[in-house]
Structure formats: C-alpha cells, structure tokens
Design a protein around this nucleic acid. Structure first.
Lengths: 269, 269
DNA sequence: CGATTCCTTGAAGGTTGTCAACGTTGGTGG
DNA sequence: CCACCAACGTTGACAACCTTCAAGGAATCG
C-alpha cells in the first residue's frame, strides 16, 4: 500500500476550485427557474462579501468563537474541516454536524445563538469572516441573499435529518457507510475530489462522537469493513472499494455477514 | 388516578391561545432589539397570510403532501400534532421531527424539496395552507418575513441538534427524559399547557421511531420511569412527577438505579 | 362482537459499551 | 540520536443495553 500523504499538503488544505461552492441548484432539479436564478445571485453576493474579507488560519482543535474573538461572527470555511458539537454534564460530547470547505458557519448568530462557541476545527483551516451578525442581517434585505441564507439553513437541516435517520435505525456498519458516502458525495459535488478516495481529518474518537458510538467499536467495525473490502479508513484516508455494498449498508438493505468477514484476511496488494 | 381525557377534546385539539405562536423572542435574550422587532413584524405578516387562508381538517395518519394535493404547499398547524419521517429500504422508518400546534411545515418546498410528502399527521389536525411555495418566495422580498422564515428554519435545526445529541450519547431513559421535557417546554412556551401534564398523541411504536428504539424497549423503560415516580406516560398522557431527576437524566448527569426501580411497586393514589 | 391496532411481558441472543492493557505515532528536549 | 511523552489506535474479556421472537391482553372501531 502506498504511503498516505501527511496532514500538511492534504487535499482539504487545497482551496476550493472554481469558487468556494458550486451552484446550489446542482442537485435540486425540481425548483423553479426563478428560484435557481435568485439563489445564484444571492450566492454571488455572499461570495463578494466573503471574498473581500480577510482570511485567517486556525490550528486543529480550536473553538471558533474564541479564535475569532466574537461569538456572533459568521465564517466561511475556505479550507479545512470543522464540526459543531454539544456537550453533556458528564463530559461526553456529541458532534452534530461536520463542515467541509465552502460551508458557512455560525448563521444562527443572526438570532443571537452563540453557535461559534460550539464549533471546533477538525484540521488546520482557513476561514473568511463577516465580523458581526448585524452585517448579515443587513444583507438579508436583498431577497436573493435572504433566499440563499435560507437555502444554506435548509441544507444543514437535510444533513441533520439524514444523520438522525442513520443514528435512529442503522447499526454501526450502516452508520459508517452513511458517513463515508455522505462525505464523498459532498466533496465530489464541490469538485474537491473526483474519485472514491478522500482525506478525512477526524480521529476515531471524533467519528464515534459523530455516529453515537465508542472509539473501541468504531475501530472494530472499521476493521470488519476493511476486511470485507467494502471501504478502508486508515491514517485519515478513506478509500471506497465497493460503493454498491456501501450504499446497501446505508439503506439498511443488506445484512453483510460480519462474523465471516472478521475471520478473513487483509489482501490489499 | 383520575380518568384521562379521550383523544377528542384533548388539549392538542384546542386552538392556540393568543395566536398560533408566541413572540419568537421569548427565549432569545441575547439578540438585538432590532432583530426582535423585525422578527415580530415578520411573524405578523405570516400570521396575516395564514389567518386569511382556508383551514382544513385531516385525520390522524395522513400524509400531508397527499392530503393537501400539493407537495410544494406550506402549512401551519393550527391544532394537532404531526411528524416528519424518513423511510429505509427494509421498511423501517425514523421520525426526525415532531411538529406541535403553531409550527410551520414544508418550508423546504421553497427549494423544491417535497417535504410535505414526508410529513404525517399524528392526531387529527387543523391546518392553514399557503397553496404554493412561489407565494412564500414572494413574501421573502420583505426582510422581516425573510428573517422570520430563517428564524423558523433555525428553530427546527436546534430541535434536530438536540435530538441528535440525545440519540448519540444518551441511553433509553435519557432519550425519553429529553423527549418528555422538550415537548413540555414547547407546549408551555406557546401557552398550550401551564403545568407538568400534557397529552402526547404518539403510540409507543412512534416514540420508538423518534428515539431510535424498539416498541418493546420503550415499553419497559416507560414502566421503569413510572415505577421510579419520575414521569408517567399512559394512555397518551404525560405527567412529570420529578422534573429535577428528569432533567438530570436528560443531561447524562445521573445514573438512576434502574434495577432497583423495576422491583418497586406502583403507588399512584 | 369480530378485527385491528396497540400495549405488555418473558426468554434468549446479538450488538455495543466498559475496562484494561499494549502498540504506534509524532513531537520535544537532552 | 535517543529517551521520553502524549495522543491515538488496537485488541481481548466481560457486562450491560437493547433487539428479536413469541404470545397474550387491552383498547378501539365498524
């Protein structure tokens, strides 16, 4: 197996090609032409604002609210990954969303929620910043921008619903299948990758926090999926070998014989 | 124990008092005066639209998209409960959100998502309808309305995040504690109830789909919570006995001795 | 009152968590 | 260069939580 690229210089450090996000209408064929047009205009308007703002580089593991010095700022990820989390009284925590390059963070600040205080970087990141929520509210006087903001919120909601369904009704393999497929889809849609291989800057502990499982179990199921030659997740690098079976696991449509799988031997070469 | 009111005439059939939703700023003390004002204006504008629309009554168990005959309509619940679900290939399903009187449903239709096709009524409901998403897009030309729509989306997101955290890191008792508390909070905020008792028009199967558990286990844990005199859920009626312990369970802060609890005897008199 | 759905309970087994230990990796400083 | 350290990854044994299967009871409705 070839040597995996180190964290510095990894794909997620590359700036998004052709703008921070592709046209938002790429996967919504049902919406009317008019909304498509307005959304594109709104996106351009936000592009202008973010593009004109100074960029900052943050290390992995920083809390965005503290790092930018304002809880009501609104950021866009230019490079790197981040996650939004919720903590519990006993110290455990859950990751409720993962942000990829091009995603906008902290939109809830419009309504006074200090969401940047619950967002942490997963890797070294580059962010563009609108310093205050007030500026964003101003921008929402333009309907295209307001529509685009609503579209961003709606997209985040769909991710949450999808994760919710997976946590609710899939076992560990199904959840991992869903996660690896979703990240792949999002990265491809933004043309950050082209094939079925990508870098995933999350530790197994963080994956466990995201999928509602423990590190130990994540580790075991990862091994099973690797030995079954469905997907490999090693050294922060995901390689999808059998996308059909992966989709099947994510749809709850297959019961892969996991006991048999574990007994097999890795034959990668 | 007193006889529980039947479904007809139950609290969730009563129209929301003082308008379909209270001022949205009630639980967001941090937001600026200006946003508060604009949100209130936006809410009034939507109130006018919905208030002037014809109401419809639907039976329990209907799919909203089919019942209103349009997948891109936008509805507001005047009375009754509804839920949004996601299905899996093998027939299982997950409930990703529960809607209470006053909630707006199907906002994603703005972007072409047929969300009404994945929303089902949980009880007999009364709805007000904006027939097409296009009308709502028109309304978003007004910044107050656009802000209010974004606020509605943001609220739904926060519910999803909270449920996500619960599914990710709480056991069955913690999830049930979270659910019963959240419904209570939402109903009280809208002045649909005043105390710690309310009607919950969901079967145990539906609760299981919502919390990612099986009916059988919901049933057992419900019995344990009842015998521990923390919360009673019988015949679609929730009674919170010990809100402190319930909050503790929802925050992962307590490990109630459940084995002992099961051995106890019900003493409700 | 038959039919359907919902609720309830027991027994058995599978998935996942907990505990504990050790290996690996990458960085730091002597 | 090596010792050391901290974080992360890996593995085994065992326990707990939850599901599955099965069956019977209770409520609701035409």
């Amino acid at each position: 197996m070839q040597k995996i690229a180190n964290i510095s210089g990894a794909p997620w450090d590359a700036p998004p090609q052709g703008g921070p996000d592709q046209c938002p209408t790429g996967d919504e064929p049902k919406q009317s032409q008019r909304v498509r047009g307005e959304l594109t205009v709104g996106q351009r308007q936000l592009n202008t604002i973010f593009g004109g703002s100074p960029t900052r580089v943050l290390d992995a593991g920083e809390i965005l609210g503290a790092a930018v010095g304002a809880s009501d700022a609104i950021c866009r990820l230019r490079a790197g990954w981040a996650c939004e989390f919720r903590g519990f009284a006993n110290g455990t925590r859950a990751i409720v969303d993962v942000y990829l390059p091009g995603d906008v963070l902290g939109l809830d600040a419009i309504f006074g929620t200090r969401s940047l205080d619950e967002i942490s970087t997963l890797s070294t990141v580059t962010i563009e910043t609108i310093p205050t929520a007030a500026a964003m509210i101003e921008l929402m006087g333009s309907r295209p921008t307001a529509l685009y903001v609503a579209w961003l919120l709606s997209r985040r909601q769909r991710r949450a619903d999808r994760l919710l369904a997976a946590l609710s009704r899939l076992d560990a393999r199904g959840r991992l299948a869903t996660m690896t497929l979703d990240f792949c889809t999002r990265l491809r849609r933004r043309r950050l990758i082209a094939g079925l291989v990508y870098n995933l800057p999350m530790t197994q502990t963080q994956i466990g926090d995201y999928l509602g499982l423990t590190v130990v179990h994540i580790n075991r199921v990862l091994r099973a999926l690797r030995h079954a030659r469905i997907v490999t997740l090693e050294k922060h690098c995901v390689t999808i070998h059998d996308i059909e079976r992966l989709k099947s696991l994510a749809e709850n449509g297959e019961t892969v014989n996991s006991r048999t799988i574990v007994g097999e031997r890795s034959l990668n070469g």
